[in-house]
Amino acid sequence: MNGMTIIVKNISSWIKILIFLFGIYITLFGHLTPGGGFAGGVILASSYILLTLAFGKRVTDENLPLWLASRLDCIGALLFLAISLVGFLFGASFFFYNFIQQKYLAQHASDFHLVSAGTIPLSNFAIALKVGASLFMVFLVLSTFRPGEPAQQE
């Protein structure tokens, strides 16, 4: 996998930044506009998939290797679990108590802001991290798998 021609490399080196920014936008504004953590995570993963397809596997190994992707996957899952558990410290008796938002609305009465939704943007971020890292990890495993190597040894 040495990558494609120079036209594809030049264009994708610009496009990948835009795709990554669009993924971050979709993720962070998921509670105000259409989108959310799932779509944002898939878009983030697709930017790295474009990088892998255009430049080959060696560039991806320097930027986001397999072990880092699996660590990010675990970090996203644990972050989402932590958000669900932190609400117990603020006096809730159930999962996913929206602890930031209760205090915020006591002081401000405004809606439609980025910070007005409490834990929802944090949950969106955790889900986007988890979905993006895991899907990119699957793509990396599928693309680096060479059929026939281990089977001959059995």
């Binding site: 959310g36 996913f96 609305l105 939704a117 409490g118």
Partner: peptide, 17 residues
């Protein structure tokens, strides 16, 4: 919940489990 997107408020607050 403070979220204008009702779907996001359902999947991440009411039914986050």
């Amino acid at each position: 919940t403070g979220a204008a997107n009702i779907v996001a408020s359902v999947i991440l607050d009411y039914r986050a489990y």
